[in-house]
Simulated assay, not measured.
Amino acid sequence: MSKPLVIAVDGPSGTGKSSVSKAVARALSVSFLDTGAMYRALAWSCLNDGIDPSDTARVAEHCRTLDLAMGTDPRSPTVSVSGRRIDREIRSEEVTAVVSAVATNLDVRADMLRRQRELIAEGVALKGGTVAEGRDITTVVAPDAPVRILMTASEEARMARRSKQLKVAVEQTRSQIIDRDRADSTVSQFTTAADGVVTVDTSHLNFEQSVQAVLRVVKEAVGDDINLPAEAR
């Protein structure tokens, strides 16, 4: 890769953006940043320290002093708070139930924006590029990224995927997907592609097809500045 590469991926829950973005980062040998995990880490830390996630002032202050470390190796990304690995803990139902409360806190978002941009820059410096995925990466965090993608899928496909992931009935996933997207959309835009953002609809694509679709978008955007796996050329 001859030039620094930032690939910004937005999208609602259940589109496959996290797993696909991680696979794309592995294929390109660049860093990977799951920005949603950063908000989950803060939510976990609030619960762990007895802070009400709806107390916006306390949560914002807690965020400013949060000792958060993100491991950006796409082969084994990690999340740590104060030196403690919490990769599994941040995926718990308790954290999922409150993460939108901290993610819609505007002071928290401002602090996370600074951290996210620093992590993206670190990935570029270390690996020549970063795949960053989340809610408003294409429009706020990395609006000047050379590759910006909105990953979408039908509501039915999204709920079916999340249901399979969590091993629960489809109807049980509705609140986790629809309600959370509704809450998060009050502070970020991730359902409609902004100008210059390419939409990749994964409704009828399997995992490998989704990865290849994203890699083709990258190829079209940066051309000969990147070496793609043979199957994506």
Rank of each mutant, 00 (worst) to 15 (best):
S82V: 02
S19V: 14
R64G: 01
A23V: 09
K17I: 07
G50W: 10
G50P: 12
A37G: 12
G83V: 03
M70E: 03
S100M: 05
T65L: 12
D73S: 06
T130Y: 08
V108W: 00
S18Q: 10
D111E: 15
L106G: 00
S13R: 13
L66K: 03
V98K: 13
W44N: 04
S100D: 03
A125E: 15
S100V: 06
R40C: 06
V102C: 03
S21A: 15
P74I: 13
D52P: 13
P53I: 06
R75C: 03
R40H: 13
R117P: 00
G83I: 05
A60S: 14
H62Q: 03
A27T: 09
T35I: 12
G16R: 08
W44Y: 12
D67T: 07
W44A: 05
R75E: 04
P53T: 09
A37I: 09
E89V: 04
A43N: 11
L28M: 08
P77D: 05
G71T: 03
D34F: 05
T96C: 01
M112F: 13
P74T: 14
T35D: 06
Y39P: 08
P53M: 01
L68S: 05
G83Q: 01
K22L: 12
L47H: 07
R117T: 00
D87G: 01
L33K: 10
V20N: 03
F32S: 07
R64Y: 00
T15P: 07
R117M: 00
K127R: 15
K17D: 01
